[in-house]
């Protein structure tokens, strides 16, 4: 039987290769506070229309997420990178998704205790009933926490 890795171990390995500086700069400067551009609009599409990325940074992060999902060939997790909203750190969102979107989706939302714990620097495991999620801090070159890596297994991703 091949050796399998725990989800947390996979997240630790993945986070080693994630360039946190790229996550900080995954959007061009003029788009980082994109929700402010459409404050007051009630169109369901307006917010998403404002999203833009620095492609090289996004692609580098995406590649690590896709490869992290494959570290253990006996597991099939999906990976995503969460950030806190600069204009309101109580809120967060997925900024780069790997093979699938987490079940929470791609919208900006209020962060919950498990993921906030990881944003404070402590890797966190979350029991999801049929499945499991781990949250692992992602740091930039200044060793600041700039995001959280999510790995989830046996929880259906968002269908979109």
């Amino acid at each position: 039987m091949p050796k399998t890795y725990s989800l947390m171990e996979i997240a630790r390995l993945g986070a080693l290769f994630l360039p946190g500086d790229f996550l900080e700069d995954v959007m061009p400067p003029e788009r980082r506070e994109y929700p402010l551009k459409v404050a007051g609009t009630d169109s369901q599409f307006a917010l998403g229309d404002e999203i833009d990325f620095v492609e090289d940074h996004f692609n580098a992060l995406k590649r690590v997420l896709l490869l992290t999902e494959r570290i253990d060939p006996l597991r099939r997790p999906y990976a995503a990178l969460w950030i806190r909203r600069p204009e309101n750190p109580a809120l967060g969102e997925v900024m780069v998704a790997g093979g699938a979107l987490p079940s929470e989706g791609a919208d900006i939302m209020t962060l919950w205790p498990d993921i906030l714990r990881a944003f404070s620097g402590r890797p966190t495991r979350r029991d999801r009933g049929t499945g499991e999620t781990v949250y692992f801090p992602v740091r930039n070159s200044d060793e600041e926490i700039v995001g959280v890596l999510e790995l989830t297994e046996n929880v259906p991703p968002l269908f979109i």
Binding site: F45, L47, G48, D49, I51, D52, F53, V54, E55, F58, N59, K62, A80, E93, V94, M95, V96, A97, L101, A106, I160
Partner: peptide, 17 residues
């Protein structure tokens, strides 16, 4: 693909940028 879903960095559909 649409970048609003954060799965890819390009809008293949309805390019705005």
């Amino acid at each position: 693909h649409k970048k609003r879903y954060k799965l890819f960095p390009y809008d293949g559909d309805e390019t705005r940028f």
